[in-house]
């Protein structure tokens, strides 16, 4: 159930550290970076299933990072995390293909449910693609 890789992206180091510790305790495979650029670099190196992305960050902000992630790895699901009730940004994120959004401070259980949902969606998507490929393969 929890055998998937999560990447947390947030510029608040204290928040990031505690969240990683708590999630690890719940048996999730979590890594964390505090910059959008680092997140993209991590995606290139490591397998990631779901990204939790803070909207407001210095450097590459949440929306830009999201756009770039979806560009490079369309199957990776992204959950947006907003520090304030900026619905416009959240809606924009959804339009760009984010799975969902959450507002800080959030309940950890809620986050984990969302992560699981996102991962489930990703797995379904992958299975569907696999099936299609197989169909295409047999036809060929």
């Amino acid at each position: 159930m929890n055998g998937f890789n999560v990447l947390l992206v947030d510029d608040e180091l204290e928040f990031l550290d505690t969240l990683i510790k708590r999630m690890k305790k719940r048996g999730l495979q979590v890594a964390g970076v505090n910059r959008g650029e680092d997140a993209l670099a991590w995606l290139d190196r490591e397998p990631v299933d779901v990204v939790v992305l803070d909207v407001k960050m210095p450097g590459l902000d949440g929306i830009e990072t999201l756009r770039e992630i979806k560009n490079r790895r369309p199957l990776v699901e992204v959950i947006m995390l907003t520090g304030h009730a900026n619905m416009e940004v959240a809606v924009q994120g959804m339009e760009l293909g984010a799975f969902d959004y959450l507002m800080k401070p959030m309940d950890i259980d809620e986050l984990i449910y969302k992560l699981q949902d996102a991962n489930r969606k990703k797995s379904l998507q992958e299975q569907r693609i696999k099936r299609k490929q197989e169909e295409l393969g047999t036809r060929r």
Partner: peptide, 13 residues
Amino acid sequence: NNPVAIMVEEAGW
């Protein structure tokens, strides 16, 4: 919201 989030996380921890 950011510090509150940290506080809540720490409490959760």
